[in-house]
């Protein structure tokens, strides 16, 4: 073995200070990385770059023809069905609560759109009762949209949302498996981010995302 040059060993307190600096640098670096990825610390998962939200047509809860296209309103879009016992009620409840936290002017600029993935059973009347129950503000109505098949499949796919009928052996009583994301679309019609339904309970951060997208 050859002789290695003598190695200077640091005193322990210098090492300790170095350690603290290193941890601070790590956490700071990660924070900075997150900031560079997203200048605003979005809570939802962002689309980078934003994508144009696909337009679609159907009928609303009042049986009127409805076309979703960039309409100057910030939109929270959710694919669900009215026979859904848990996630859809939960999602619509949270979205309505978040809407209630916005300023009156912002509420006018905000809409919640519920697209049925079960158009066979979700008639306009059914949808009307459903969104009327969860949308508690008459000024900012929650929209329930029925898009008939086969267009619905294409619409859902264009948003990256999936759905399928869960077979329970009955033709009229079945449940749907579906993507449980809520999509946030800005007033220019750009898809900005999505929240997983497990994230929605954090109303403050969901609200902050909406307000940032509204700016």
């Amino acid at each position: 073995m050859q002789d290695s040059p003598p190695i200077t060993v640091r005193p322990w307190y210098v090492s300790l200070i170095f350690a603290l600096i290193a941890v601070a640098a790590l956490l700071g670096g990660v924070w900075l990385y997150a900031r560079i990825q997203n200048p605003f610390p979005y809570y939802g998962t962002t689309y980078t770059p934003p994508q144009t939200a696909p337009a679609f047509s159907g009928s609303d809860q009042d049986s009127r023809a409805y076309t979703f296209a960039p309409q100057g309103k910030t939109t929270a879009l959710f694919f669900g069905f009215t026979h859904c016992p848990t996630i859809c009620p939960l999602t619509l409840t949270y979205l309505d609560k978040v809407r209630g936290r916005l300023s009156p002017a912002q509420q006018k600029d905000f809409q919640i759109v519920f697209v049925s993935i079960d158009p066979e059973r979700d008639s306009p009347a059914q949808l009307k009762s459903y969104v009327g129950f969860f949308g508690t503000s008459p000024a900012s109505k929650m929209l329930g949209v029925n898009v008939p098949e086969p267009q619905l499949a294409a619409v859902a796919r264009s948003y990256g949302a999936g759905y399928s009928r869960a077979d329970t052996g009955s033709k009229t009583e079945y449940q749907m498996n579906h993507t449980t994301a809520t999509y946030l679309i800005d007033r220019r019609g750009q898809l900005r981010l999505l929240w997983d339904y497990t994230q929605l309970s954090n109303l403050e951060r969901v609200q902050a995302d909406i307000q940032e997208v509204m700016r």
Binding site: T86, I87, A166, Q175, T180, A181, S201
Partner: peptide
């Protein structure tokens, strides 16, 4: 966010609770 994820409900025949164990039924 990065895959087509779907949520499904699945019926189960039972839930077991060991002594002292808690089980929470919640919307999520």
């Amino acid at each position: 966010g990065n895959a087509l994820d779907m949520t499904a409900m699945k019926m189960v025949t039972d839930f077991a609770l060991r002594p002292g164990q808690s089980l929470t039924f919640a919307p999520s």
